[in-house]
Design a protein around this nucleic acid. Structure first.
Length: 770
DNA sequence: CTATGTAAACAAC
DNA sequence: GTTGTTTACATAG
C-alpha cells in the first residue's frame, strides 16, 4: 500500500446516517469556512475551537481530540481521536456541532485515530482500536437510528462498498472494506443448508411444497433472520451475476465448477432449489458465458473447468458482506435487523425482489446506492476530497452520473476493487484494467501515448512501476470488460488501449486498421493467483453484444498497448491491468477482420460493417470514438458540486473508475461505472502528479483534463512517495447525517501537492499520524 | 438504451 | 446429459 501513488486515497466509505441529535441547523451561511485554503492545522480540543467562523459548535469533545481544519476542503475538519476516546460521544458532539454550524461551519469531519496512521498491510493497533470502536459505535448508532430516528430526520442508509473482502478471504476483512464493519452481519446466517438434494434438473419443475420445510430448517439456522425465510420463498435480490460471484468468492481458490455454483446457490438461496424454475441453471450458464468477468479456466489436464472471476473485476464480495442481517447477537432488536435489512434491501436489492413469482425483475441494487471506494489522485490533499474539490484530473474516474461533463471540475476516482490480499489499493488502481470506452469526450487525451496496461495481477507488487511501461494486456478483451467490473478507472475519455500484441492487436489505437479478431481468445498471462496451470478462457465481447470468449493460454506475451493519441477517442488506461480494447478498437478490428471473426456475436457489433447487429445500434458508423456500446467506462463526470459529499448515494458525483466493479460485482448496476473519470486513459495515468495536485483544491477546473492521468500506472514510476500509508477513518457529514467509513492515505509527502506545498505532509499537521 | 432474466438452439464432450 | 456459447426476446428502469 505504501506504494500507492495516490495521495489521499479513499478506498471506501460506508455511510450511515447519524442520529440526529439536533435537528436544528443553523441558518446557512454560505460559506465555507475559510478553511478551504490551506489551513494549517488548527487544533482545538474539545470545545475550544475558536468560535470563529467555523466554530459553531458548542459541544464539548472529550479531551484529547484534536480538530484541525482540512487544508483544502471547506467546512471540513479533521478530528484526531485518541485511541481511547469515546468515539460515540465524539461523533455526537461533532454532529451537534455540525448542526449548529449548519452549512457555514464545518459540517464534515474526518475522524482518524491518532494512534496509528498507517496500515500498510494490517491495521495498527490504534487503528484497530478506532476501527473497532467505530464499528461498535456505528453499529450501535445505526441501530439507534433505525429505531429512534425521527422519521424524517435520518434514515438509515447503508451502503456497501464494493470491494469488501470476504470473510473467508480475509485479507480485506480487517479493512474498512469489510462490510461487517457496519454491524456485523453474521455470515452464517444461512448456514449451510446442507440440504441439497438435487432434485431438479434444469428442466424439472420446482417443488414448492418442499419449501416450507426448507424454510423451517433455514429459519432455524438463520436465527434472526426472517430474511432468510423469505429467501426461500422469495427470490433473492441478487442478480445471477452477483450470486455467481458470491459463490465463487466463497471458495478459497476463488474458482468453482458450474455444478458447484449451482449447488452453492441452491444451498444459500433455497428459492432456487425449490421454487425457481429449472431454467435458472440455464441462466447461470448464460451469465457465466456472457459476462467477461467470469473467466473459465481449465485445469491443466483439461478435464475440469472452473469458473473464476477475473481478478481485476473481482471484488471478492461475498454473500456475507452483502447480505447478512446484523449479527444475530445484536438481535436485541429485531427491529434493528429488520430495519437494517430493509435498508439494505432498498439499497442493495431490487425493490421488487420481494415479488414472488413471476419473472425476475432486476434484482440488483442499482447503482447509486453503493459506495465505492474512491481514489484520489495522489496529489490530493489528504484525506478526502470531495467530489467537489477533487481535481479534475482525477476526477475523471467516473462519474457515476454524469457522463457528460467530463471536464467538470472535479472528479474523483473511485478505487476499483479491493484486492484481497495484498494489494495495495493503489496497485489496483494502477493496474486495473481499463475498459475503456469512452465516449464522452472527444478530446484527445493528453496523455502520453503509450501505455500499456497490464492485465493481470501477475505482478502485483510491481505493477505500479511497471505500468508505464507496458502493460500487457491480455488480450484483448476488447471490449471492455464486460460489465462493469472494471477495476480501474476508466478514464473518461475513451480508451483505446490495446494490447499490442503483435501486430494484430496492437494497432488499436492507432489508426491502424484493424487487426484480426482472433483475439477473441486471449490468454491471460498469468492466471490469477494460484492457478497457473490452468488455461483461461476468456471471452470478449464485442460491443455491447453479449460476449464471447477467448481462450487464454497460459502463455504470455504481453501485448503492449498503444494508446491512441488521437483525440477522438482517447483511450485511457487505467491502472487496470486489463487490457481492453475499446470498442472502438474492436470496431476497428472488426472491420477489418470481421469476416473471419471467430465470434458469432461480434458480428453484431461490428459497426464498421454493418450496423446490423441486433443490439447495438449505436455503433454504427461513426462515432466510434467512444461511443461504443461499452463505453461505459468513461463517462465523464460532470458534477461539480461544491460541497463535499460523502454520501454514498451520490456516487455519481464522485467519479471513480471502477465503480462499476463495485457495483457490478454485486450485480449492482454498473451504470454508474460506466462513466469514466478521465477523458482518456492517459489522463488517468498522468494525472498523478501535477494535475492532481493542483486540481482539486485550487482550481480544478480548468486544469487539465489531460493531466489527469491515472495515477496508477504511472505513479509508481513517478516515484511517488512511498510513504503513503493508509488508515481508516470515518467521515461524519452533519449535513447529510451520514457517517462513512473511509480508508485514506495520509502519509504523503506532499510532493506534488501544491496545496500543501512540497514537502508537506499531513503528518506535519497531525503529528499523531506519524 | 441498458441491464437483466428467460428460453432455446447448438456445439462439444 | 452436461457444459458452454449465442441468439432472441421480454421487461424494468
Amino acid at each position: 500500500m505504501r506504494t500507492s501513488p495516490r495521495r489521499p486515497l479513499i478506498l471506501k466509505r460506508r455511510k450511515l446516517t447519524l442520529p440526529d441529535g439536533n435537528a436544528s441547523n443553523s441558518p446557512a451561511r454560505d460559506e465555507p469556512d475559510g478553511e478551504s485554503k490551506g489551513v494549517p492545522k488548527q487544533e482545538h480540543s474539545k470545545g475550544d475551537k475558536p468560535r470563529d467562523r467555523v466554530e459553531c459548535g458548542t459541544q464539548k469533545f472529550p479531551a484529547g481530540i484534536k480538530i484541525i481544519n482540512h487544508p483544502t476542503m471547506p467546512n471540513t475538519q479533521v478530528v484526531i481521536i485518541p485511541p481511547d476516546a469515546d468515539i460515540q460521544s465524539i461523533i455526537e458532539a461533532l454532529t451537534a456541532k455540525g448542526r449548529e454550524c449548519g452549512s457555514n461551519g464545518p459540517n464534515k469531519f474526518i475522524l482518524i485515530s491518532s494512534g496509528g496512521s498507517s496500515r500498510p498491510t494490517g491495521s495498527t493497533a490504534a487503528q484497530q482500536t478506532l476501527q473497532s470502536k467505530a464499528e461498535t459505535t456505528l453499529a450501535r448508532s445505526t441501530r439507534c437510528f433505525s429505531l429512534r430516528a425521527p422519521s424524517g430526520a435520518s434514515r438509515l442508509s447503508v451502503c456497501f462498498p464494493a470491494g469488501s473482502g470476504e470473510a473467508t478471504s480475509s485479507g480485506l476483512d480487517n479493512s474498512l472494506t469489510n462490510i461487517q464493519w457496519l454491524g456485523k452481519m453474521s455470515s452464517d446466517g444461512l448456514g449451510p443448508c446442507t440440504v441439497k438434494q438435487e432434485m431438479e434438473k434444469e428442466n424439472q419443475t420446482p417443488v414448492q411444497e418442499t419449501i416450507k420445510i426448507e424454510e423451517d430448517s433455514i429459519a432455524a439456522t438463520a436465527t434472526s433472520s426472517s430474511l432468510w425465510q423469505d429467501s426461500i420463498s422469495e427470490r433473492p435480490p441478487y442478480s445471477y451475476m452477483a450470486m455467481i460471484q458470491f459463490a465463487i468468492n466463497s471458495t478459497e481458490k476463488k474458482r468453482m465448477t458450474l455444478k458447484d455454483i449451482y449447488t452453492w446457490i441452491e444451498d444459500h438461496f433455497p428459492y432456487f432449489k425449490y421454487v425457481a424454475k429449472p431454467g435458472w441453471k440455464n441462466s447461470i450458464r448464460h451469465n457465466l458465458s456472457l459476462h467477461d468477468m467470469f473467466v473459465r479456466e481449465t485445469s491443466a489436464n483439461g478435464k475440469i473447468s472452473f469458473w473464476t472471476i477475473h481478478p481485476d473485476a473481482n471484488r471478492y464480495l461475498t454473500l456475507d458482506q452483502v447480505f447478512k442481517p446484523l449479527d444475530a447477537g445484536s438481535p436485541t432488536s429485531p427491529e434493528y435487523s429488520e430495519s437494517v435489512r430493509l435498508s439494505l434491501c432498498r439499497t442493495l436489492a431490487d425493490p421488487f425482489s420481494s415479488l414472488p413469482g413471476r419473472k425476475m425483475k432486476p434484482l440488483l441494487p442499482r447503482v447509486s446506492s453503493y459506495l465505492v471506494p474512491i481514489q484520489f489522485p495522489v496529489s490530493q490533499p489528504l484525506i478526502l476530497q470531495s467530489s467537489l474539490k477533487v481535481p479534475q484530473p482525477m476526477a475523471q474516474g467516473a462519474s457515476l452520473s454524469g457522463s457528460e461533463a467530463i471536464r467538470s471540475s472535479k472528479r474523483v476516482r473511485i478505487a476499483p476493487k479491493v484486492l484481497p490480499s495484498t494489494e495495495e489499493p493503489s496497485s489496483y488502481l494502477t493496474t486495473g484494467p481499463v475498459k475503456e470506452k469512452s465516449h464522452c469526450d472527444e478530446r484527445p487525451p493528453p496523455f502520453a501515448p503509450t501505455q500499456s496496461v497490464k492485465e493481470n495481477n501477475s505482478q502485483p507488487g510491481e505493477a505500479p512501476a511497471s505500468f508505464p511501461a507496458a502493460l500487457c494486456i491480455k488480450e484483448e478483451k476488447e471490449d471492455s470488460y464486460p460489465d462493469k467490473w472494471l477495476p480501474s478507472f476508466p478514464p473518461v475519455s475513451s480508451i483505446k488501449e490495446e494490447p499490442v500484441q503483435s501486430d494484430e492487436e496492437t494497432g488499436l489505437l492507432l489508426p491502424v486498421p484493424c487487426v484480426k479478431r482472433e483475439k477473441h481468445f486471449t490468454v491471460l498471462k498469468s492466471p490469477p493467483r494460484g492457478v497457473s496451470d490452468t488455461v483461461i478462457i476468456k471471452r470478449r465481447k464485442m460491443g455491447r453484444s453479449r460476449r464471447k470468449q477467448h481462450l487464454v493460454l497460459p502463455c504470455s506475451e504481453e501485448p503492449v498497448l498503444v494508446l491512441p493519441e488521437s483525440g477522438g477517442s482517447d483511450s485511457f488506461r487505467l491502472a487496470s491491468d486489463l487490457p481492453f480494447l475499446q470498442e472502438t478498437q474492436s470496431l476497428e478490428l472488426s472491420c477489418s477482420q470481421e469476416e473471419g471473426g471467430p465470434f458469432k456475436t461480434p458480428v453484431k457489433e461490428m459497426f464498421c460493417k454493418l450496423p446490423v447487429s441486433s443490439t447495438p445500434s449505436k455503433v454504427p458508423t461513426a462515432t466510434p470514438p467512444m461511443g461504443g456500446p461499452d463505453s461505459w467506462r468513461f463517462a465523464p463526470i460532470a458534477k461539480e458540486s461544491s460541497e463535499l459529499d460523502f454520501s454514498p448515494v451520490r456516487t455519481p458525483q464522485v467519479p471513480f473508475t471502477s465503480l462499476q466493479e463495485n457495483l457490478d460485482l454485486l450485480g449492482f448496476n454498473s451504470t454508474p461505472l460506466k462513466n469514466s473519470l478521465f477523458d482518456s486513459p492517459r489522463q488517468l495515468l498522468q494525472t498523478e502528479s501535477n494535475d492532481m495536485v493542483s486540481g482539486p483544491l485550487t482550481s480544478s477546473p480548468a486544469s487539465n483534463p489531460e493531466s489527469t492521468k491515472q495515477s496508477s500506472p504511472e505513479l509508481p514510476a513517478s516515484g511517488l512517495p512511498e510513504n503513503q500509508s493508509l488508515m481508516e477513518g470515518l467521515v461524519l457529514d452533519t449535513m447529510n447525517n451520514s457517517l462513512s467509513k473511509i480508508l485514506l492515505d495520509i502519509s504523503f509527502s506532499g510532493l506534488e501537492d501544491d496545496i500543501l506545498g512540497p514537502e508537506m505532509s499531513w503528518s506535519q499537521f497531525i503529528p499523531e499520524l506519524r
